[in-house]
Computed example of a mutant assay.
Amino acid sequence: MHTALDLPPPYTPIALREAGDAFAHACAVAAAQGAGTLVWVRRFDLVECAVVFEPEEVLATARQVLFAGMNAAADALAAIAPPEKPLVLDWPDAIRFDSGLIGGGRLGWPTDCAEGVRPDWLVFGLMLRAALTREPQPGAVPPAALIDEGFEDFEVPDFIASFARHLMVALDEWASVGPQSQPARWRQRGRWRDGDLALALRAPSWLDPATGEPIA
């Protein structure tokens, strides 16, 4: 397994040990470390990373960066996925491959920031199940994992670097076309439902709070 990230500017990587929490750490250091900070966890069985942004828009608009992160993750997966199996985004934050839940994205922002105020920072976190480390219970259907789904020679650091590059493309599109470009692209792969995005993001739909990993 590779142990380093090959990232272009403006990213600044922070690597955590296996027991680390990339999303929580990124939220904790966002104000001090600033935009481009990318926190990741050194694990072979789980893609876990988080990126810090310093948005120019008010929170209600800037929150749509979730869709930029989801699009980047989907693009990075599509580049190496078996072509015969579908990759689908579920409203607003889950990622499914061949109908199996593999993980998703989440968004953090300052808790005291009002909807009409520009937040000092945002954090997009990504978590995907890369490999199974525990045998399922007898008779149970094993959860979806990338390596078992045909993502051959999958390396977590390589994927995170690919995701980071695709995220730069998504943000360039945001800057040139506008924030609405990202939910529009999400809809091309996603099952959209109208709803309160801020409320939906308070608790990630794909995350098992007991394990801190994607729901099995």
Rank of each mutant, 00 (worst) to 15 (best):
P55D: 04
G190M: 09
L59D: 03
R129V: 00
A73V: 15
T3W: 14
L122E: 02
D112E: 12
G103S: 07
A200H: 07
L126N: 06
A78V: 04
P82V: 06
A170V: 05
A78S: 15
G103D: 09
W192E: 09
R96H: 15
F67T: 10
A200P: 04
A60E: 14
T211E: 12
L171C: 13
F23D: 07
V156S: 10
M127V: 11
A35T: 02
L197F: 04
V177W: 10
P86G: 12
I215E: 12
T61E: 12
D196S: 08
W192Y: 12
T37N: 03
P83W: 04
V58W: 03
E18N: 09
V47P: 06
L146F: 08
G20Q: 08
E173W: 09
A184D: 14
V52S: 01
A144S: 11
F124V: 13
G100P: 01
A79I: 02
A79L: 06
F154N: 08
L171A: 04
W206H: 03
A32G: 00
P119T: 01
A60D: 14
V29I: 14
V141C: 07
A81V: 01
T133L: 05
P119V: 05
I215N: 07
P138G: 14
A203G: 04
A79D: 09
L46E: 02
W186G: 09
L46H: 01
P110T: 02
C27Q: 13
E54Y: 01
D208G: 06
L87S: 13
D153G: 09
S99V: 11
A32S: 07
S176A: 14
L199T: 14
P138R: 15
P179H: 12
P82E: 05
A50H: 02
S205P: 04
Q182G: 11
D172H: 09
I14Y: 05
D6P: 07
L199I: 06
G103V: 10
G103Y: 06
I160T: 13
R17V: 11
E152V: 10
R187K: 13
W40N: 06
A198Q: 15
W109V: 00
G105W: 05
G103M: 07
V141A: 13
R189I: 05
V52Q: 01
A22V: 02
S99G: 08
V39R: 00
R118C: 13
I80F: 01
A144T: 11
A50W: 00
D6W: 08
L38Y: 08
C113Q: 05
A114L: 10
L167C: 00
D172W: 09
A145E: 04
L46G: 07
A184Y: 03
P209W: 01
F154S: 01
A74L: 12
G108D: 06
V51A: 03
W40I: 07
L122M: 00
G105R: 06
A78P: 08
V58K: 13
R96F: 10
V88M: 12
G190I: 07
T37P: 04
P8R: 06
Q33Y: 03
C49G: 03
D194P: 00
V47H: 02
A94H: 03
L171M: 15
T12D: 03
G105A: 15
R189Y: 08
V117G: 01
G105T: 12
D196L: 10
R134G: 02
D90E: 15
E135T: 13
G34Y: 03
P204F: 00
G139P: 08
I147Q: 14
A170K: 13
F23Q: 12
A200M: 07
R129N: 01
P82Q: 06
R96V: 09
D90M: 14
